[in-house]
Design a protein around this nucleic acid. Structure first.
Lengths: 323, 323
DNA sequence: TTGTAAGCGTTATCAT
DNA sequence: ATGATAACGCTTACAA
């Protein structure tokens, strides 16, 4: 694994009485370029010497690494953890390994990560951006470096592949349902919207159905749901409370669901885990499919890595569901 | 970043009119071995050529990588995500990067990971084991390969450093409190205990106080809390329900807390996130400090990596708290 | 089918 | 203070 006396290709060559070139061929699966006999000899030698390739040397000569950088917003969130799993599961079938970097929802940290990325020579980058514009990313794309955006989009003069959710559409459809049930107002609770594409699209989906909306931007680090209850107009039977993010939803639900003895759902939002279902078993929420989003992103980047000449410009949309 | 024409140390040498050896010295911070002038020239050349080191070449010649493998039980869990953050935060200050591998709580996956680890040449391994004995790990230690266990212990003829929580102690202390409140029986709900050191220790802590215990091992993939409620003897005022893991606790709480109109807490357990606090604001639970556990593990492995001769045999215990 | 040898981008030893 | 140069372990023409 490390340490001093690892066997090298030379040792294997000596032991199996062939040249290093042949060993290399064997290692790269070119069995049709050698006799069964030698293949067998090599196999034995490798096993006996407990040989494993030195990937640094391989990378050096091939001028490419098998590492794909993945920058996530916050790995604490189930959503990110899950799509990372999706990414890794696909990458690993191609001998690639995903390296997780966590921006901790912090723009400065994100910037540092992006800058430091250069020195490690990654084969590609899967990126969940915090902002909506990045010079670094543009430059990477100019150099034909594979980049795939996940979850959120950015502005760029260069084409950049992406995997997102049908935020606008699913929100709109959900709103249609609630509208038809008689709701006439929506109170949206969200973290700062800023330029984040997901949040903007979701709100657009709401506004496409409801004229009367009240957007509350708040920082939900603490359990401030107490105060919240007073502003969200929960007792108005025409008012729907919509949480843009599960964390917020959970806080509201755990505060409010005892209030709702009737069977009418007046709170909904986007969820990632099953916890909201525990809190309100009969409610429906909008569920994403982060694992598949990750898998899709990985597939795109694999294509781009193997064909660096012309990078893809695909925009995969994984459907969310209200259920 | 990747792609064809990256500047190399040679280009920098040519541009700044010195030899590659001097560039290398500069890169490694040996400024006292060169004149101010040349240092300046080199600095400029590097900037103009946008040069960054090829880490594969560095690794090859130095025979060591800057990658630390981290095998977690399941990155979905807040606990793991959080200690991974702790690990990375410390590693990065030493130019090391943590590579996340997820065994998905699956023994076979874990085995594959452990085996495949060899080909990438990591500088060390931080490992949250599923089982309590591993030949591979023993072999790694024999070769002086740095390994640090996190959260759970294993049996090994070799010394292996670890970072854990005071599972027994904190559980015992918590049990003392409940005993003094009049509880005389504990119903423990847990996933399969097996040989997992954490679970064994926690149960020992309980048994050290309560003679009357009922251990229910269950697989909590689904929301089966309904059935559960019938077996946990919740209406017995002498009975304390103890969940060994947050996921289970949340299910029970969201099912049961409406039952408890009195102010007596009869459910507790280990938690990672703030969700249980939402569900039962006045209850107390046992909280770990995963971030610090990760940080501590990283510090040990850094020491071991820089001093491969004699690996450490430290056993750090990060305190959990009932609060 | 197999071998020879040049080269990938660094570092470190030994000169100067 | 600086420069030549041999290694590090592997891949891949090109030869045989």
């Amino acid at each position: 694994m490390d340490k001093h006396k690892r066997a090298t290709i030379k040792d294997v060559a000596k032991k199996s009485d062939v040249s290093t070139a042949t060993i290399s061929r064997y290692l790269n699966g070119k069995f049709n370029e050698m006799s069964k006999q030698t293949a067998k000899k090599i196999e034995i030698a490798i096993r006996e010497l407990d040989y494993t390739r030195n990937s640094a040397a391989v990378q050096l000569v091939n001028r490419k690494s098998n590492l794909v950088a993945v920058i996530v917003d916050n790995i604490d969130e189930y959503f990110a953890a899950e799509y990372f799993k999706g990414i890794v599961s696909i990458l690993s079938t191609h001998g690639l390994v995903g390296v997780l970097f966590d921006s901790n929802s912090d723009v400065n940290t994100e910037k540092k990560l992006l800058d430091s990325l250069e020195s490690h020579h990654f084969a590609g980058l899967i990126f969940q951006p915090l902002l909506n514009q990045y010079d670094v990313i543009d430059k990477l794309r100019e150099n034909n470096f594979p980049v795939v955006l996940i979850d959120r989009l950015i502005k760029s003069p260069m084409p950049i592949s992406s995997v997102t959710t049908n935020n606008f559409q699913v929100t709109k459809e959900t709103m249609d349902i609630f509208y038809s049930k008689g709701f006439r107002k929506v109170t949206v609770i969200t973290e700062r919207i800023g330029n984040m594409s997901t949040r903007i699209e979701r709100i657009a989906g709401i506004k496409s159905v409801f004229e009367n909306t009240n957007i509350i931007e708040h920082n939900f680090d603490h359990m401030e749901a107490n105060n919240l209850c007073q502003v969200i107009d929960i007792d108005n039977p025409n008012n729907l409370v919509f949480a843009l993010k599960e964390k917020i939803l959970i806080q509201i639900l755990s505060k409010l669901n005892w209030k709702n003895e009737s069977n009418i759902q007046n709170i909904t939002g986007f969820i990632d885990t099953v916890v909201p279902k525990y809190l309100a078993p009969h409610y429906k929420f909008i569920q994403q499919s982060p694992f598949y989003m990750g898998a899709a992103a990985a597939e795109i980047i694999i294509k781009d890595i193997s064909n660096q000449q012309e990078l893809s410009d695909s925009h995969v949309v994984i459907q969310s569901e209200f259920k």
